[in-house]
Amino acid sequence: MTGGGFSRRIYYAVGITLLVLFLLTVGVAYIDLGALNIVVAMAIATFKTILVVLYFMHVRYSSRVTWVFVSASFFWLVILLVLTLSDYVTRGV
C-alpha cells in the first residue's frame, strides 16, 4: 500500500485536469440547459471526485478492501437519497 505511488507528473496532470473541470463547471452553468444544468454539474463533480479518489487518495493501487469501503459509502449514500426522494416525487401522483 505504501511505496509505489504515482510520478509527480501524474499528480500535476490530475491537478490541472481538476482545475479545467472546475472551469468547465462554471462555464456550463452560464449556458441555459434547462433541467440538464444540474445533471451536467453533478456529472462533472462526480468525475472530479473519481479523479481525486483514484489518484490523490491512491485507491487505484489500493487493496480490494479499500475499493469495497469506497463503493459501500457511495452505495449507502444512494440508498439514502433515492429512497427518501422516492417518497417526495410520488406524492399526489
Binding site: S86, D87, R91, V93
Partner: peptide, 8 residues
C-alpha cells in the same frame, strides 16, 4: 408519506 413509497 406517499402511498407508493409506503407500498415499496
Amino acid at each position: 408519506q406517499s402511498v407508493y413509497a409506503g407500498m415499496a
